[in-house]
């Protein structure tokens, strides 16, 4: 299964980024082959709709599940249209979150926020 996590840097030791739409990078990780790829987030400097563009990137990379601390409603609409599972991170460690997913310990992200529109996050 291919999963995506918003991350602060291009390394497995870095932290989970607090923003989904405006994170600098995404980790794309294959739980079977254990191959990890880091993608630049082209939406990071968008004037608006960063979450939508970021979600489009996730969908285009055939990801099955997204692990994120939070997600806005527009991004969630795109991800749900593509049947991508949304999980909530347990802490800021990438490895902990991947391990928790493998052990079935992650819960679904249910509190979808209405967006910050340049006023936060």
């Amino acid at each position: 299964m291919k999963i995506a996590i918003p991350v602060d840097d291009k390394s497995m030791e870095t932290s989970v980024c607090q923003s989904f739409g405006r994170t600098p990078y995404y980790l794309i990780y294959d739980t079977e082959s254990q191959v990890s790829i880091f993608l630049d987030n082209s939406a990071v400097a968008s004037q608006g709709g960063a979450g939508i563009k970021a979600a489009q990137t996730i969908v285009d990379n055939q990801v099955h599940a997204l692990i994120t601390p939070r997600c806005g409603e527009n991004a969630a609409k795109v991800l749900m249209a593509a049947d991508i599972m949304l999980y909530k991170t347990i802490n800021t460690s990438i490895k902990d979150n991947i391990a928790a997913l493998n052990n079935g310990k992650l819960s679904l992200l249910e509190d979808i926020h209405p967006g910050f529109h340049g006023h936060g996050g």
Binding site: A43, S46, Q47, G48, G49, A50, I52, K53, A55, Q56, V59, N74, K77, V78, A81, A82
Partner: peptide
Amino acid sequence: CKFNALAFIINKLIVFDDV
């Protein structure tokens, strides 16, 4: 779209009216 008001998901164009 500079405001990313459109997305193309699973062969379907989605328009975000508010964006």
